[in-house]
Nucleic acid binder design. Structure first.
Lengths: 214, 214
DNA sequence: TAGATTGTTAATCGATTAACAATC
DNA sequence: TAGATTGTTAATCGATTAACAATC
């Protein structure tokens, strides 16, 4: 299963969640396709590759489909833990974001190097000095970190997270982090979100003569 | 030039910017490839498709390369304008972000439906009620909007932006917006950034048996 | 039945990679 | 010259799409 497919499966799952809450019980490949912005052929192909079968002319049963997709995606009842490293404005905004829980994600702690930030008691989750990352990661069984530190601190922060045992990083700094192979042979998963780069792309697409689809 | 290629070209440009500021004057395809996380063959292929030629054994001249890539990307001296719609924590964090300017982007205004937000004078850029979007967009010659409204307001906000003449949207809401064809036949450019989805993908990749590369 | 939808196979498409001649 | 790098061609790879039999 490649990356694109993981994204699609996750999208299907979210869409099914909403359809179910609207009371629907069945769904056709082309409905799911429309909602996910892909072709019906891809939906059927994806399900076929995952050995998920519907009823000819009857579509797919939503609860059954969700169970199967959920187990493929590794959905469990318990919340997945993340930490936020760098509690500037963006980090704090994410600490306050209430939408994570409905996707099974919980922010367990924040970290910052600035005492005026980690000594401030007004945060929705505990905030510690960066020196305590390893402690807290181990204690709370956390595998994934969101990095919202300034550009200059990115490389150091990444190193520190790796030695603390973090296995996945969502990086908001404009420095692109690369998925390094660790000493034990495992690969760190890194996703880079570069907001300025997204905007630059949009501006390029606007001025470019050929119309590109997303 | 497809989307992937636009991203790579933008990356090359940024990397060249840094190399130049370090005093370098030439660069080999494989250096650029390493920094951008792609293969040297792709770098040469990209340049070849763009009719950019280096010197055999000598690599590429950085200033010349930047000029050419810059003109392809539509880089100008003047800043590109964006507005931020939805001045909650994330919107405000982006309003305060100082990194846009070095990429040629300027936030000209924010918008919110809540009077206690748009009447608050403590913002780094002017903040108006959402009813004034069309005005301000026209006055300031803005084509791109960043959407940081709550999930429930996303669809309405998108409609309002379209009728105000916005041509590109960077959407942070978990509702995926689709690039609609407008009445005049032009296509709105939409990029969706879904933070929870990124985290879900990371968790999937961590629990999945096969190691995926980014 | 007729019509609609699934599931699969083969064809198409496009992007990446390999290979190598050209040349500095 | 020998070695290194570019630029291009052809091969490979993989994903998407088209087409259609199966079947409800």
């Amino acid at each position: 299963m490649n990356n694109e497919m993981v994204i699609r499966i996750t999208r299907y799952y979210r869409i099914l969640n909403r359809l179910r809450s609207l009371g629907l019980e069945k769904v056709f490949a082309h409905n799911l396709a429309d909602a996910a912005g892909v072709s019906a052929a891809i939906v059927r192909k994806d399900f076929s590759l995952l050995s998920i079968y519907g009823q000819k002319r009857g579509g797919y049963e939503i609860p059954e489909l969700m169970t199967k997709l959920g187990s493929i995606l590794g959905k469990t009842d318990k919340l997945e833990h993340v930490i936020i490293v760098g509690c500037g404005r963006i980090g704090r905004a994410l600490m306050h974001y209430t939408g994570f829980e409905q996707d099974g994600i919980k922010v367990v702690a924040g970290f910052d190097s600035d005492p005026s930030i980690y000594n401030d008691p007004n945060h929705p989750v505990p905030v510690y000095p960066t020196s305590r990352i390893e402690d807290v990661v181990k204690e709370s069984d956390t595998k994934v970190a969101i990095v919202t530190v300034p550009e200059t601190a990115t490389a150091d922060t990444f190193q520190r997270l790796l030695s603390a045992g973090i296995q996945g990083v969502l990086n908001f700094s404009p420095i692109t982090l690369k998925p390094i192979k660790k000493a034990d042979g495992t690969q760190v998963i890194v996703h880079n979100v570069n907001i300025a780069l997204e905007l630059e792309q949009i501006f390029y697409e606007l001025q470019s003569p050929n119309i590109l689809q997303q």
